[in-house]
Design a protein around this nucleic acid. Structure first.
Lengths: 187, 187
DNA sequence: CTAATAACTAACCGATTGTTTAGTTATTTA
DNA sequence: TAAATAACTAAACAATCGGTTAGTTATTAG
């Protein structure tokens, strides 16, 4: 019927995601998004509706990106070792592409209070819940752990992920590995 | 010679610090600072020069606020137990006053990249280095730990502080305590 | 080839950002 | 009491924020 889009939404979102990953939500402006995505505001708004829309779509893209890791994690059957592998995989993926440090969700987690942006907040909470559920599942494989212990350890590991995200930003590869090893010493 | 200030700088900075603590740096605006500090922009700028100045002064105030904890920590002589106490004290202080969750430095740590605000960035790095040095000092008290182990454990504990800060924001008192206990299981 | 239509450019929107400044008020000292 | 001076009020500053829109360009279907 009419003119074709000169860009591919998946491609420009990939770039937007990288920008959010590096700078967080607030300090990423529409100007920066225009430049990074290579399209202008009109196109951004016609494709994604709002800045929030771009971020929400970036979160989806992030989930897709780490889907490989999550899939491997879900289908694994070695209990605690699977969680450890998941930690190592999380580090590797941020090493692979560009300057993306830490985890997009963990990095931006603090920026959104439940009150001022419930949509994004819920997405993040869902992500975290998903991770926690998988932790519990893998921890349960042991068979010897009681429910109380499993809950404690899952919580511990979820919080340890914050440390891991911080580590990938400021620590060396060796220090990161040491951190992971120490984290799992008692699990 | 002339008119007296109708406010006390220490008092208004205390309030500014609380605001930064709750909202972070970027999402705290001068308007919000005016309202919270109870003085207008002229007074803020004549006292602190800029928004960055207010934050820098807030960091100083934060250091003063936790000086009690740090002092206790510095002068303690029970090694690992002192670090654990320090973790518990860090939680208690954020429970004491208002809605201040986590640690001001840890919360805002991610917001500043080395490049765009070196002054603040350096202050934060100095704070972290200070904590790490104390960790090393206390860990060394044991006498049995070799240098390599001490470095590893100090790094681990510093990263664990990120998890702790996250915990004080989203977890229950019991979960926080469990987290601390698990963190120190292998130290 | 033409009418329809979607994608694009670029200027613009009001609101808000951090910051400054002109004018007024209060206090001090001589 | 009067001149000096610092603290205050309030309006305005340019720049940027997220978001919109009028007008142009390209592609399609008939």
């Amino acid at each position: 019927m009419a003119r074709k889009k000169a860009y591919i939404e998946e491609e420009v979102i990939e770039k937007a995601m990288g920008l959010f990953w590096r700078n967080g939500y607030e300090s990423t402006s529409m100007q920066m998004l225009e430049k990074e995505m290579g399209i202008n505001k009109f196109s951004i708004y016609s494709s994604f509706g709002s800045k929030q829309g771009v971020f929400l779509e970036s979160l989806k893209n992030y989930n897709k990106k780490i889907h490989v890791i999550f899939d491997k994690f879900k289908n694994a059957n070695n209990g605690v070792q699977d969680i450890k592998d998941f930690f190592y995989d999380s580090v590797h993926i941020s090493n692979l592409e560009g300057n993306h440090k830490g985890c997009l969700v963990t990095n931006t987690y603090n920026e959104f209070s439940e009150s001022d942006d419930p949509l994004i907040s819920n997405q993040m909470a869902a992500f975290m819940d998903n991770v926690k559920t998988l932790f519990i599942e893998k921890l349960s494989m042991d068979g010897t752990k009681d429910e109380e212990t499993i809950k404690k350890q899952a919580n511990f590991l979820l919080l340890a992920k914050h440390g891991l995200a911080a580590a990938t930003r400021v620590n060396t590869q060796k220090e990161i590995e040491d951190y992971i090893e120490m984290t799992f010493m008692n699990i």
